[in-house]
Structure formats: C-alpha cells, structure tokens
Design a protein around this nucleic acid. Structure first.
Lengths: 188, 188
DNA sequence: CAAACGATGACAGTTACTGTCATCAGTATA
DNA sequence: TATACTGATGACAGTAACTGTCATCGTTTG
C-alpha cells in the first residue's frame, strides 16, 4: 500500500482554487489549504514556490507550446503572422470550454498580487516568443515588438473568449483580434 | 523648531535606493532602511505600501502626464499617433540624463519581485492610456491594443535610452521605436 | 489658552516563507 | 535476504514583511 495518498500536488491545487474562490486569496492561509488537502504547510511550499504560484503552474506548458509552434512555423511567414500561429498553438492547450478559465480568472481579477503574477507570466511568454523569433533570424527590436504585440492580442482575445456572451472558439477570437491589431498600427 | 527632521519620505527613498544598490533588494530589511533614515520600520510602511513600492512612487506623475497629453492631443490624430505623443510627454517627466534611471533599473533587473511590480505599473499605464483613448471616442479593442502597443514601444525605447552606448534623447528613441513597430505589423 | 491635529514611536500579533533534521514505505543493491 | 539508499512527507524553529492599536508631543486652529 502506498505510504501517502496520491497526487498531493493536485489536491493542493484544487484546495487552493476552492478556498481562493470562496473566501478570496488574501483571506486564505496556506495552512488552511494544506489542511484541506490533508498535508502540511511545509509540503505546500515544496510543490509551489509561493502562495500565488499554485494558480500559475500551467504556464510552463503554454510557453512550450508557444515556442514549439514558432520553431515549426514556415520561415516564409512574417514575424507577426508566425506569432499568430503560435498563439493558436497556445489556445490549443486550453480546455475547449472556458469554464475553468473563467473561475480562475475571477480569482485573479479580484486580487492585485495575483494580477502582478499574471502579468509577469505573460511577460515571460513574450520574452520566450522574442527569443524564438530571434532564432528565426528576426532582429531586435522587431522580435521584441512582435512578441509583445502577440501577447497583447492574446490578452484581448482571452478576455473576449471568457466573457459571458462569447460563443466562439478561442482560436477564432485570436484571429479576429490579430486583424484588429493590424488595423490599429496601420494608423486607421 | 520642527519636531522631526523634514522630508522623512525622501530620506526613506534615498536610504532604500542606496541599500538596494549595495546589498541587493532581498538582502535589505525594512528595519535597516528605516534605521539609515533615522526612523522606524512602522514609519516606512506609513509612507510606502510595501518594500517594493519605494522604487515606484514616481509612477503616478508619469501616468498623469500620459493621460494629460492624450487629452490635449489633436483629435485628428490616429490612436497610435496620439499614443506616440503621449509617450513623449512621459519622457519629458524623466531627467534628461539617464543616470538615475540606470541605477534604478539595475536594481529592478536584479530582482524578480521588482520586475513584477514594474510590469504591473506599466500595465496600469496602459490601462490609463486605453481609458483616455476611449474618452477620445476610440472603441475597444482598438483602444486597448493601441495602448498596449504604446507601452511596448516605451519599454523598448527606454531600454535603448539607458544602454551604455546610447547618445540620443529618449524622445528621439521613442519616435524611432514607434516607426519600427509600424513596420512590424505591416508584415514586413 | 484649550482642543484638535498629525507625524511619529512602541509594541504585540499574524502569516508567508525557509532551513534542517527525522521518519519510513518502497526500491535498488550486495 | 539483509542492508543501504531514496524521496516524499512531517515537525519545528526561525526570519521578516506587514498590520492594528495606543501613546506621545510639537503644531495649528478656534
């Protein structure tokens, strides 16, 4: 018989989501999360670097999808369009239904500390995209700007996607938002 | 005679900059900052919301300059060009010489927590710019995208400006960077 | 001149996070 | 089969960021 219940990390993440939803992020202590998961506070910090990180553990997979897609994209594509393809690869990593993303985003939107972490994760995505573009031969500052624009498009599209009224695929919303971006910088 | 030495806030900010530079942000305690300023830890937290905020207290003035310039800019300008003018107004708030900005940025670049705070401050600038654009009659998502583009341009330009080799005005670097942005989204 | 004010100090309390050592079921090794 | 090793967890003490609260006492105001 196993010495411990399996999937400690998953239980911690679930307990954290539940408590952050119910009481709010600040009003939840790590001790409470650990207790609900049947573990100790110390073990929480072995699985997650800090109290916020439990909501952002999935970011690594998104970053890998982004970079992989940029490496595979046809070299003939302009930087901004390669980024567009990469954004759709990121979208493919998310569940088809936005329910989970909505729950998670509501928690983040209710707390400034979590918004800080979200922004730095997005900045990290942008930096990884810029690196991948440079490996495609795109020079700075074009690489940085194309990457930042891609992330801006993703943010706008994601927000639309999880909005209550939206009916479309994230992939579709991304394409539309990218087109609007191109119109903006064309000075229209 | 005054009951206390004047400019407690300024002394705290100076002490913090000095110590963050010498020992690094993490290795500096708030108690040390307060002691160097001749005050107590409790007083530090009356002037600054947290240990990071002491490096970002100037952000309010930048935001006001940004919004003011957007309100004053000719309505005939395309959103992205109005944003360009607003960025130059922000630049005018900074000292002409990048020395101070370099010192400050070196501290931030050495610490992830400070980078989080920097990013959320920039995000706040972007949100304020988007609001100002909406008041100019620019619809979403154009307003959001133009604002985010502007902040991306500012980041790139600022980094160039404080680089050791740069000789140009921040204002000039901003104009150049904005032109490069336009080239990116034109699909070149 | 008395009362209200406002910046600061003193001090106790909470909690995020870290370092360190012990525990012990499972696994590899001699 | 006995022994050593491993790896996830617990136990526990410690640091430091931040908060709440009350006291202090020059300054300002009526």
């Amino acid at each position: 018989m196993a010495r411990w219940e399996p999937n400690a990390r998953g239980r911690l993440a679930q307990a954290a989501m539940d408590l952050y939803s119910q009481r709010g992020f600040e009003q939840t202590t790590v001790a409470e999360i650990a207790q609900r998961a049947g573990l100790t506070e110390r073990t929480f910090f072995r699985h997650f670097a800090d109290k916020r990180e439990v909501l952002f553990a999935g970011a690594d997979a998104l970053q890998q999808a982004l970079v992989g897609a940029l490496e595979d994209a046809p070299r003939s594509l302009a930087p901004i369009d390669a980024v567009g393809i990469a954004l759709e690869a990121v979208a493919a990593q998310l569940p088809e239904r936005p329910d989970f993303s909505r729950r998670r985003q509501a928690i983040i939107d209710a707390n400034p500390e979590l918004q800080e972490r979200e922004r730095i994760k997005l900045a990290s995505l942008a930096a990884a995209a810029a690196d991948a573009l440079r490996r495609r031969g795109v020079a700075d500052p074009t690489a940085v700007l194309a990457a930042e624009m891609g992330i801006a498009v993703f943010r706008v599209a994601f927000e639309r996607w999880i909005s209550a009224t939206n009916q479309q695929d994230l992939s579709r919303v991304i394409r539309d938002s990218l087109d609007e971006l191109k119109a903006v910088t064309a000075g229209k």
